Amino acid sequence: MKPVRKLLSSFFICLLLCSAASASQPGTPDELAAFKNFAIGWVVKLNKSHIKGFSHMEIVLQKDGNYLARYHAISPDTISCKVKRTSAKSKGTVGLLKYIETIYESTGKTPQAARANKFKPVKNIRITEIFSNSGKGWR
């Protein structure tokens, strides 16, 4: 029951932030630049710590006896950012970060060969994250 409650709470917070942002003015060029810098750093952190990232590559033995190597990565080229001021009395901004997470796969006769062979993108996942800044940095 607790995971459902957390999910619903997150959903309602997200709705509140989105509604506050949609009824507001676009952020300034300086606010957008600051958010873009934050977003790039965020994506770098995600790529380094991703549980299914390159450094935590998944190697799976297939039915045919070959090995499949798989990892997830986010290309900084796919980052898109928007910043809006909230309509709340306390000044603040909401940042929308959109990016594409790509799943890469390679196969080989051994785990080492699967890691060493050329990886091909097999799936793209579009992701949107919402951050807020009330003057204390992006959260």
Rank of each mutant, 00 (worst) to 15 (best):
S9H: 06
S9T: 09
S9D: 11
F11N: 11
F11M: 13
F12W: 14
I13D: 11
L15W: 06
L16H: 02
L16M: 13
L17T: 12
S19P: 05
A23I: 14
Q25E: 15
T28D: 06
T28H: 06
P29S: 13
P29T: 13
D30N: 15
D30G: 13
E31S: 10
A33I: 13
A33G: 09
A34T: 12
F35G: 04
F35Y: 13
N37M: 10
F38K: 03
A39T: 00
A39N: 02
W42R: 10
W42N: 10
W42D: 02
W42G: 00
V44C: 10
N47H: 10
N47R: 12
K48C: 03
I51L: 15
I51S: 14
K52N: 12
G53F: 03
G53I: 05
S55A: 14
H56I: 03
M57T: 02
E58T: 12
I59H: 06
I59F: 02
V60A: 06
L61M: 09
K63C: 04
K63F: 08
K63Y: 06
G65V: 07
N66H: 10
N66K: 09
Y67D: 00
Y67M: 06
Y67V: 07
L68G: 04
A69R: 00
R70C: 01
Y71N: 04
Y71P: 02
H72D: 14
H72I: 07
A73M: 04
A73P: 00
A73H: 03
I74R: 04
I74N: 00
P76A: 10
I79R: 11
I79F: 13
I79L: 10
I79E: 05
K82C: 13
V83W: 01
K84S: 05
K84R: 14
T86Y: 02
S90N: 12
T93K: 00
V94G: 01
G95M: 02
L96S: 13
L96G: 00
L97H: 09
K98T: 07
K98M: 07
E101T: 07
T102M: 03
T102W: 00
T102V: 08
I103Q: 03
E105Y: 08
E105V: 13
T107Q: 01
